[in-house]
């Protein structure tokens, strides 16, 4: 599942980041690393960016980037 398809207020595990993602390095630095648990907090209207909770901090990423991040639901 792609991050962009995730539900609000749910926790997911980051599985992988697609190749060719310009922001990969930045995502790693923001703590979005495969294996890490993230929570989708809210989406901005009008196809705006997503706000995530990573490691206790809030992180905002654009939709394009979010459609290149693969996630897995936590049972």
């Amino acid at each position: 599942m792609k991050l962009i398809e995730g539900n609000i207020d749910k926790n997911y595990i980051v599985e992988s980041i697609d190749g060719g993602c310009m922001a990969k390095d930045r995502l790693w630095k923001l703590g979005i690393i495969p294996g890490v648990v993230i929570k989708i907090k809210r989406r901005a209207p009008l196809k705006g960016p997503l706000m995530l909770e990573v490691n206790g901090s809030d992180v905002v990423i654009g939709r394009g980037i979010a459609s290149r991040i693969n996630i897995k639901e936590i049972e």
Binding site: M22, L30, P49, D58, V59, V60, I65
Partner: peptide
């Protein structure tokens, strides 16, 4: 030049 997408911490 490209305009990189938003990726930052709040």
């Amino acid at each position: 030049g490209i305009s990189p997408e938003m990726a930052l911490d709040i």
